[in-house]
C-alpha cells in the first residue's frame, strides 16, 4: 500500500475527486492547508502572498494503483501554471479497518497477467 499526499488548488478539488472516482479510487481524506512552493507564493503589485490556501488530499491505494491515482490527480489538477501542486508518495506498512479490526491485505497481482 502507498500513501499519496496531493497538495492541489482548492478550486480544482472537485475535478480531482471526480477524476479519482472515474479511476475507481473513492476513499480519501481532505484537509485545508496553507503553503507555498518554489516561487515563494505570488506577488501582486507590492503585496506578497506567501501562504497560499491549498487542499491536501490523503489517499491510500494499493501499489498497483499508484500510477492510476497520480494520473487521475494530474488530469484533475493540471492547469500548467505554477502552483498546481505536488503529489508525495510514501509507503504504508499496515492498514487496519477499525470496524472489523482486521488487517487489510493487498489483493495479489494475478500471476502471468
Amino acid at each position: 500500500m502507498k500513501l499519496l499526499r496531493a497538495i492541489i488548488r482548492p478550486e480544482r478539488e472537485e475535478q480531482v475527486v471526480e477524476a479519482l472516482e472515474v479511476a475507481g479510487i473513492v476513499s480519501l481524506t481532505k484537509m485545508d492547508v496553507l503553503g507555498r512552493g518554489q516561487q515563494r507564493g505570488i506577488q501582486v503589485g507590492a503585496t506578497v502572498y506567501d501562504e497560499l490556501p491549498k487542499v491536501q488530499l490523503m489517499i491510500v491505494v494499493e501499489d498497483v494503483k499508484v500510477d492510476t491515482a497520480v494520473a487521475a490527480i494530474d488530469v484533475g489538477a493540471k492547469t500548467g501554471q505554477p502552483g498546481d501542486g505536488k503529489v508525495f508518495i510514501s509507503s504504508v506498512e499496515a492498514v487496519y479497518t477499525i470496524r472489523t479490526g482486521q488487517k487489510v491485505t493487498e489483493t495479489p497481482i494475478p500471476q502471468g497477467a
Binding site: V95, T97, R99
Partner: peptide, 27 residues
C-alpha cells in the same frame, strides 16, 4: 508499541458500523 497502540485504537473505536475509520502504519 505499534501493535498495542493499534489494538487500543480498534478497541475504543469499533462500533461495527460503516465509517469506523482506518489505521495506517507508516515507517
Amino acid at each position: 508499541q505499534v501493535e498495542l497502540l493499534v489494538n487500543a485504537i480498534i478497541e475504543t473505536n469499533q462500533t461495527g458500523q460503516l465509517g469506523d475509520g482506518k489505521i495506517f502504519v507508516l515507517p
